[in-house]
């Protein structure tokens, strides 16, 4: 079902830029993230005139940083901010990297969607 492509995380912005130029209709449906083994995986779910396309990239858990695609596709902004808040993967060069979902007094470095997070154990940093 659909196409699945793997892209190196350092290449992701250029890849997206090229992809956007390559066809008449391009829509980023969402960006999702999950963790497995020593990596976080980020999936970009696209729709194009040819069909749907899922682009996967991975970043190591000890340094979860990858280039933001928002300079070339501003429509990714809320999805990247959501992942920064919830999975703790940082997007370098994001056009607006403020918190979106977590409240201001949520402690730094606690990411609810990570597997080692258990609901109910967070203490406010105030």
């Amino acid at each position: 079902m659909g196409m699945w492509v793997d892209v190196n995380s350092s290449e992701i912005r250029n890849w997206v830029e090229e992809f956007l130029k390559s066809g008449a209709f391009r829509l980023l449906s969402t960006i999702s993230g999950y963790e497995e083994g020593d990596n976080y995986y980020i999936l970009y779910h696209f729709v194009g005139s040819e069909g749907d396309l899922n682009v996967r990239t991975s970043v190591p858990k000890e340094n979860p940083v990858l280039p933001s695609i928002t300079p070339v596709l501003p429509g990714g902004i809320l999805y990247e901010r959501e992942i920064q808040d919830l999975l703790g993967v940082k997007f370098e060069g994001i056009i607006d990297g403020r918190r979106l979902i977590l409240p201001e007094h949520w402690p730094e470095g606690v990411y609810p969607l990570r597997k080692d997070f258990k609901p109910g154990e967070v203490k406010s940093n105030e």
Binding site: S29, T30, S32, Y34, E36, G75, I77, L78, Y79
Partner: peptide, 14 residues
């Protein structure tokens, strides 16, 4: 292992 939901309002808020 993972369920991701993106509802249409999220897309339209941008």
């Amino acid at each position: 292992d993972r369920v991701k939901v993106r509802a249409p309002t999220m897309a339209n808020l941008m």
